[in-house]
Amino acid sequence: MTVARFWRKIPQRYNLIGTKCENCGTVFFPPRSLCPDCRRDGKIVDHHCSGRGKVVTYTVIRTASDQFSNLTPYVLAIIELEDGCRLTSQVICDPSEITFGMPVRSVFRVIAEDGPSGIIHYGTKFVPA
């Protein structure tokens, strides 16, 4: 990933800054700049997501792409935040611990590196709450 592409989304990736449609109240994380329900009637503003949520579904990744292969096995989950939106993230826990509805909270972690001399991608992972 190029530096600009990563830098552009630093607030969102580091601090779970999503968006909210003030017309219908829906929170979007990952952020959207157009509300799919209200479209042009929507009014999109930034929204700081709580970082607390629960596991909706999960897997344990045993075979990863080259960039993540040093992490295997790792837990990947879809998490529903208290704000009502869902996102995909790693959960830092033993693969045998992960369950449906498990409460989790966000933490700031290294996600991946672009090789030994490339940039380090930071972002959000989750831990059992």
Binding site: S65, L76, Q90
Partner: peptide, 27 residues
């Protein structure tokens, strides 16, 4: 594995370590 991950959302799935088999595994 990385090329196929581009069939999903690179920015908000692939970036977090989601593989294509990983998404169907969650299904």
């Amino acid at each position: 594995t990385d090329v196929l991950a581009a069939a999903a959302d690179r920015e908000w799935e692939g970036f977090t370590g989601a593989t294509f088999p990983g998404l169907y595994a969650m299904i």
